[in-house]
Amino acid sequence: MNIFNGREKATALDAKILEYLSDGPVAGELAIILIGDNEASEKYISLKKKYCDSKGIKCGVHRIDARLKDEDIFKKVFDVMSGPDTAGGIIQLPLPRPSLDPCLRLIPAEKDIDAISPFSMEAFYAGRPHKILPVVRAMELFISETTPKTQSPLKAVVIGEGYLVGKPAAQYLKSKNYQVTVINDYQTGQKIDADLLVLSAGIPNLVRG
C-alpha cells in the first residue's frame, strides 16, 4: 500500500520555492483575512505566517469583527484584496455565517492563492482552470509516482465531499477516467474496495488497514 508522504513532498517544494526566491524578494504582501474568532483558523494562519516569515515573504493578517454588518465586512474585504500592496490573498475558511459567502467573490483571480473563489472553482469544474488547486497538485504528484499504467479504469473512493478537498478531488479523478465513488456517511469498519483512497473527512484514524 502506498501512502502520500506530505512531509516529504513539502521538503521538495521548499527547495523549489527557495530557488524561486533566490532572484530577490517577492513584491507585495500575502494578505490573509480572518473574519471572526475561530481557534482552528488561528492555528492555520499562524502556520502560514510562520512559513512566510521563514522564507522572507511579507505576510499580513487582517482580522475583521464578525459582529459587523455583512455590507461592512464586504467593504473591508474588498479594500484589502484590491489594495496595491496585496500580491496575493487568502480568506480563511470557514466563514462565520453563510451570508458572508460572497466574500469569496471579492478575491481577484490573479490574487487567488488557494483558488477557492467561485470564479476559480467554476473554471476548474468547467475543465479550464487558470490555477492548480492545492489538492489537485498533490494528487498529480501521487498518481504519477504510484499508479500503474493500465487500460482498465481504476476505482477511486473519496470519503468526504468538502469544498476544498473532497469535491475537487473527485472531479479531478473523474477527469482522469477513474471510476469514482464518494462516501459522505462512512463508518469505521465498512469495507472499501478501491485502487485509490482519498480521505477528506478530517477525522483521524477513520480508515484502517
Rank of each mutant, 00 (worst) to 15 (best):
Ser46Gln: 15
Ile57Leu: 04
Arg63Met: 00
Gly60Gln: 09
Cys59Gln: 03
Lys111Trp: 07
Thr146Arg: 07
Ala169Trp: 03
Leu164Gln: 12
Phe78Leu: 11
Tyr163Ser: 04
Lys131Gly: 14
Ala123Cys: 10
Leu164Ala: 14
Ser46Trp: 11
Pro168Ile: 05
Lys131Trp: 14
Glu42Gly: 03
His62Gln: 03
Pro118His: 13
Gly83His: 15
Gly88Cys: 05
Tyr178Ile: 07
Asp85Lys: 15
Gln151Leu: 12
Glu42Lys: 12
Ser117Thr: 00
Lys48Leu: 12
Lys50Tyr: 05
Leu173Met: 08
Gly88Pro: 09
Pro98Cys: 01
Phe78Cys: 06
Pro108Cys: 06
His62Phe: 14
Asn177Pro: 02
Ser152Met: 10
Lys176Ser: 01
Val135Met: 10
Thr147Lys: 05
Ser99Gly: 05
Val61Leu: 14
Ile143Thr: 08
Asp65Gln: 11
Glu110Ser: 11
Gly127Arg: 10
Gly162Glu: 01
Lys58Gln: 08
Lys50Leu: 10
Leu100Tyr: 07
Lys131Leu: 11
Gly166His: 05
Glu110Ile: 11
Ala123Glu: 11
Gly127Ser: 10
Leu95His: 13
Tyr125Ile: 02
Met139Ser: 02
Asp70Met: 02
Lys131Val: 08
Pro94Asn: 10
Asn177Phe: 15
Leu154Met: 14
Ile113Tyr: 09
Lys58Pro: 01
Glu110Lys: 14
Ile132Asn: 12
Ser46Phe: 12
Asp65Glu: 15
Tyr44Gly: 06
Lys55Gly: 02
Ala109Phe: 04
Pro98Gly: 01
Glu122His: 14
Ile116Gln: 09
Phe142Pro: 03
Tyr51Asn: 09
Met81Ser: 10
Asp85Cys: 07
Leu141His: 08
